[in-house]
Design a protein around this nucleic acid. Structure first.
Lengths: 244, 244
DNA sequence: AAACGCTGTTCCGCCTGACGGAACACGGGG
DNA sequence: CCCCGTGTTCCGTCAGGCGGAACAGCGTTT
């Protein structure tokens, strides 16, 4: 286990995570590393183009190289590639925000998103993650996940008392969702989200598509239309994903 | 210069770049490294969550962690943050594809993009880069760039004879663009792109906004409307960017 | 069936190169 | 003017990365 490599990545993550350019001393302090070590690694990262240094303050900030590297990987992501056209179709069909999520650990990761041109509250952005049970897409995925119980248990422990989350009730709910083929949830008051799983060949969900919007625009009839379009898109997607 | 760190990043980049999961031997061969070295570093990267190994074939593939790290950095990007609302406004106003680019080396990097719901050819995606002089946004930026001449010269050398690119004519063209305040170009037959610079306080362009679409939809009147909206957005943006 | 070539993996001795404490240069504040 | 903070550099020590070689497993070839 190359310690130097592990440190380099923890430094890069710390620099990237910081909302403003960060100083060497703070990095060294926060990561419990020697200043000279952090300095040497930062110079290496800078030579590699992952980090640069503000001219005046000597503070360090991330470049966009890590993003570029990540973007080529995400562009090659098979599910994302397959789902991309369906995302745009769903967006034009429903007029609302459409997003693609995949399971990553106990969280759901927003891989892609096409936002509604119509006004919408702040929402999760691509690249962000939230505990799977708390997202409509995550529920759709968990409904077909063998390890769902373990995930739900761990998430419940993580959330603790942040909100009243009943694991057992949630697991029962997953059975209903599995039976029905889609989720309809209200993550926040005035927000409606419907999601359906993209089934892979192994019987697990390779991801989920979600349509979300304000309750004022998504009435009964609009919800039904969205669900129908969603299920159709996911069924078609399952065919192409199954071939991978 | 930590050799181990540099090697780790070159390995990560190689794994990310590969369109399909890659084998250890190929990595070692391509990067001219010892198999055992590549193996050790891959195990480290795997422990850090940047890479994982296919169960059956033992091949290595990138995870989405590099992307996540990059995304938080790009979300904190000041120009992107400031420009985001203007992008959506421009998209709804013009109905066409709107993108935000910044200068990165001699290239222009696509930081953000809102695609038109209307049909459009394949186009550059966020995270990709192309030589600045070849993009409308790049021309808008270069028109205010002190080092434009050097960049144009280097790009011309890089392109060589790939297309007939006249550096001197292009530099003269930049003066016109600077004077006019925007670019109107036809990067491909049947595609029209208009771009304007987002001026920073130092007199250089912090980025550029571009509206692009098929020539069939962007006639004289639509072009004029797009240019007007573009210039207004860039002017407003310059105010907020100037305060950073 | 046995030898081969390929894969990913592991072992281990050598020695380089990372480590970290200390000293340095610069800069603003008290 | 000194002190505390910053980022930077130096250098002796020694751990840990390096890489050659050997290993185990699998398919194909002979």
């Amino acid at each position: 286990m190359d310690t130097s490599v592990a440190r380099a990545f923890s430094i890069l993550e710390a620099v990237a995570r910081a909302p403003a350019p960060v100083r060497l001393s703070d990095l060294a302090h926060d990561l419990a590393l020697q200043k000279s070590t952090v300095h040497r690694i930062l110079k290496t990262l800078s030579a590699l183009g992952y980090v640069d240094q503000e001219a005046v303050t000597d503070r360090y900030r991330p470049t966009l190289k890590a993003w570029e590297v990540g973007m080529v990987a995400v562009r090659n992501h098979p599910v994302r590639r397959a789902a991309a056209p369906f995302l745009t179709d769903l967006q034009t069909a429903t007029g609302e925000t459409v997003s693609l999520t995949v399971l990553s650990g106990d969280d759901v990761l927003y891989l892609d998103k096409i936002v509604s041109p119509r006004p919408m509250k702040f929402s999760t952005q691509p690249g962000s993650r939230i505990p799977a049970p708390l997202a409509a897409g995550g529920q759709a995925i968990l409904a077909h996940e063998p390890e769902a119980a373990a995930i739900v248990r761990r998430v419940a422990a993580r959330l603790l008392n942040r909100r009243d989350f009943d694991s057992d009730a949630f697991l029962r709910q997953l059975l209903v969702i599995r039976e029905r083929g889609y989720t309809l949830s209200r993550p926040e008051p005035d927000v409606v989200a419907v999601a359906a799983p993209i089934m892979g060949r192994d019987g697990r969900a390779a991801g989920a598509l979600t349509v979300s919007g304000p309750a004022s625009r998504l009435g009964e009839t609009e919800q039904q239309a969205a669900i129908e379009a969603l299920l159709l898109a996911c069924a078609r997607l399952a065919e192409t994903v199954g071939q991978i």
